[in-house]
Nucleic acid binder design. Structure first.
Lengths: 181, 181
DNA sequence: TTGAAGAAAGGAATGTCATTCGGAGCAATC
DNA sequence: GATTGCTCCGAATGACATTCCTTTCTTCAA
């Protein structure tokens, strides 16, 4: 009979699924806000030395927790003041391949398949309403696209990449207390 | 009578709205994909020297074209496998202030006000469906929130930050050619 | 309990790169 | 035609990333 702990250890090794200790999460949290921090500064905030932080960051990158490091561009001042979310109803499954071709357009920032009364959800940022119109025209040019609903953004109050912190309280919400609503 | 060119020059100076030449856009494009590039590498790709690139990047940061540099975290492997878009119908204008308080939750990544059959649009990434439920509970706890519609993401095919490139063709789409559809 | 092995952290050294400085080319202005 | 301002490049400096090595702690086995 295999030793459960040893088996788990092996799995962790193979899947590289070590469960992120407090140091890791602190580092991730800081880097998700500002990746320009030096390892020394990062270390002093996390309570580690620079080489230790470096080692952890290297591991976080290798295991895919950190996807990459990017400069966040400002839409309006870089020529794309129009932001919209487009819901796409398409006929048939497996037709999503056509939509994925839109990834080539730099205006398309996100493509998700979603559950709900729609099939696909696109996040699109472009130069003008004219360009949005042109993009919708391309959408409707696809045979599988049945209908779209666009939600043009008027104001953006918050926009950021995934954060490291997790709000534990959300999972322990006592919904029964809301039953009286 | 004021000299138009001079006036424009002054405006550019004041608004710091210089129109981004090809070098700037190339640099922005590269940095939006990988901000870890050295200035030397960046320079060789753009056809400039390292100091020249450095100067431009500094200016792009100062003028707000580059909002910041961040590490892109992977949702699933950092403990947040659930992604959803939540449409919020709220009663009355100016009540958005309540919703903005949700910015404090690291699970809330985006908050937009949109035109369409809904008022607010949230992008939410959390640990579990239980957490999503807890977040919706918080939403409904706000007096102004009338209804919500959630679109749970099943698969994400593309997800990136704003890109520098602009597809000119989108703005020159001949919509009259689509009239026959 | 003791010994051995693995993992991880810290200190110091090295190499790379960011950053700065000075000079040159170029355009626009008076 | 001289001047001012801007941007580029090459070289020098300084900071920082990266590596190496030692130490410590934990874990597993005897």
């Amino acid at each position: 009979m295999p030793n459960p702990e040893k088996t788990e250890a092996v799995q962790n090794k193979c899947q590289e699924a070590r469960p992120l200790d407090a140091f890791d999460r602190k580092i991730l949290g800081e880097l998700a806000v500002d990746a320009g921090l030096s390892y020394a500064e990062l270390g002093s905030r996390a309570g580690l030395s620079a080489p230790a932080v470096h080692e952890r960051v290297k591991r976080l990158r290798a295991t895919g927790r950190i996807r990459g490091t990017v400069a966040v561009l400002d839409g309006p001042t870089t020529g794309k003041p129009f932001l919209a979310f487009v819901h796409v109803d398409s006929t048939g499954w497996g037709k999503t391949q056509e939509l994925l071709a839109l990834s080539e357009l730099p205006e398309v920032e996100e493509i998700h398949s979603v559950a709900g009364d729609t099939c696909m959800l696109l996040k699109v940022r472009c130069a003008s309403s004219r360009a949005l119109e042109g993009l919708l025209a391309r959408l409707y040019a696809l045979p599988s696209v049945k209908a779209t609903r666009s939600y043009v953004v008027l104001s953006t109050f918050l926009e950021r990449t995934p954060q490291a912190e997790i709000t534990e309280a959300l999972e322990s919400t006592d919904l029964s207390s809301l039953a009286s609503r």
